[in-house]
Design a protein around this nucleic acid. Structure first.
Lengths: 329, 329
DNA sequence: TTGTAGGCGTTATCAT
DNA sequence: ATGATAACGCCTACAA
């Protein structure tokens, strides 16, 4: 009992394959024809083969979102936003994980090049020439939710994290905190470098001296804990800005272990304003870098480019805001 | 500048398409032939079309994992485990979200039926006859990470949540807590019914009277907060078991709002032992329902069935354990 | 309105 | 070892 094909359905219904295809795609046909085909389809349990179909029509109606770490709640926000836009346009969204390394990212873009999906949204942590090259050469449209050089020639939607850090520093100083430390993610990542510079600039703008900077090994909770340990071994800041929410929550745990109270002894600000910021205790003041909007815009750009591959690439920047919660005074 | 195909490569290299295909698939060929083909491939930037390839060979080397809610950290654990097994076997894993409704689940199974992937792991929240039917009729192997009737005839890997709740009750009583309440998810879900029964049985086993039961609207943080509100309006338990970690964290937030301290005033136990349990504050004592192992086993069953579709379906049950943290005394 | 036939890009069979 | 050619399952001119 092999799988039925259009031919099988046609035979069972006593009509031609063309008629079957027409009925299936809602093209005009007689009442009776529709009737017969549908009965046959029902009986055989026929399901069209997506590969063959897309091979013919040139579309899969699938879109892919590639993220570095499914455990990072910022991607949850982004996924939800992308999914919504994409589903409304009649596409199915699939998510794949790349891990933190560029090579995996490159492999993904290369592999996705042909046939798996009609388009791709990637949010790369690290960018190198290889990745840029693979994006340029990709046969299906790619939208980057993040920062790649303009020469890459693709649509991008990125956050303004320096501005976000400025908001955080401003907020902290307004609440009387001036010994501000910064826990960054790896400096060799795109967000890592942007945030390092953003912190330096923001502190200068407010005429403050950094109360310590740590480079965590990853953008993860565990790395945040580690960072917290070294941070409070060497300095005594009364505020910490963290490069994302996971790091911030990790740091808060370490603070508790040191018997320090948030926000009274130390204020903590995260970045991303993910669901975790709301769920953490105390709820985390966090820089909203517009992940939802970035996801939405990225999806829209992708759909637009699928419709018209000749439009000139846009580079959208989403502005941040601050979600003040209980981890700051 | 259209996309190059084998034909284009063949022309550019001055050889036949068959030779190109052979070189690409590592079949025996002359040094020179390999050389010429590879140069042409390089020059044209040729990438094979996955659809056409899989149409011919009958495999996509993609596997799909469908989850109800990407925001639920238990799926993160499961995804990681599945991904690991699947990648080691040379498959690519893609994740799709179904939402909480059966109809979406059914649509997914139906749609996935042909061509998108070589197999499917689903973890359905709600199960009805339609879903069972679509699973039975699915043209590609399906493994259910959860509970469906044996008549469905598929491999399943499920948790033993009643046993898990028993461990929780045992732990709480051992620590002197006997006024135990239960915050469940929706009772019309598979885990919801299992856990409701599990709680009732466990309480009976320990000769305890329930100190309140709430049915949350969802397995989410927000629903946990809502549940917490009504819970402490009507009764004064000194311990709460929650049907998953998100609910537990929501309840803990509400406890704090009421000025109650965890674990001194009220002990809280979650279920799933997800990353959130570790990240929450205080760290959450949680019933480990073996999500990682379930993911691993599910992936293994799927791969095994792809190799041999005739093997008799297995129904694996993973046993729980308790991860004791600071939310219980 | 319906049927016939060609081709989407690939691999596999069969000659050479 | 290499080349021509027939499928894989579907859609869509084009013809009837």
């Amino acid at each position: 009992m092999s799988r039925p094909t259009v031919a099988g359905v046609a035979r069972a219904a006593g009509v031609s394959v063309a008629s079957v295809s027409r009925v299936l795609n809602g093209l005009p046909a007689t009442e009776e024809m529709v009737e017969r085909v549908q009965r046959a389809v029902e009986e055989l349990g026929y399901v069209p083969d997506a590969r063959a179909r897309s091979l013919k029509v040139g579309r899969t109606f699938q879109l892919t979102l590639a993220v570095a770490d499914v455990g990072n709640p910022v991607y949850v926000t982004m996924m939800r936003a992308v999914e919504e836009v994409v589903a409304a346009a009649g596409y199915r969204l699939v998510v794949t994980t790349t891990g933190p390394d560029v090579v995996d990212e490159v492999a993904l873009v290369r592999g996705m090049a042909r046939g798996y999906a009609d388009g791709l949204v990637i949010s790369p942590l690290r960018v190198d020439e290889d990745l840029i090259k693979s994006i340029r050469e990709c046969e299906v449209p790619v939208v980057v939710a993040g920062n790649v050089p303009a020469k890459t020639g693709v649509d991008t939607v990125r956050a303004n994290s320096p501005k976000g850090i400025l908001l955080a520093v401003e907020h902290l100083t307004a609440r009387g905190r001036r010994q501000i430390a910064f826990v960054n993610g790896p400096a060799d990542t795109v967000p890592g470098t942007a945030r390092a510079k953003g912190f330096a600039d923001a502190m200068k703008e407010f005429n403050l001296r950094s109360a310590g900077e740590i480079e965590a090994a990853d953008f993860t909770f565990a790395a945040g804990r580690d960072a917290g340990k070294t941070l409070f071994k060497k300095s005594g800041p009364n505020a910490v800005i963290c490069a994302n929410d996971l790091l911030a929550v990790g740091v808060m745990h370490e603070l508790a272990a040191y018997g320090l109270e948030v926000p009274n002894d130390v204020a903590v600000v995260g970045m991303d304003d993910s669901e975790l910021a709301e769920q953490s205790f105390p709820p985390l003041t966090s820089v909203n870098l517009g992940s939802a909007e970035r996801g939405r815009r990225a999806a829209e750009l992708l759909l637009a480019r699928i419709e018209d591959s000749t439009r000139t690439p846009r580079r959208i920047v989403v502005q941040p805001s601050l979600s003040v919660r209980r981890s700051t005074p």
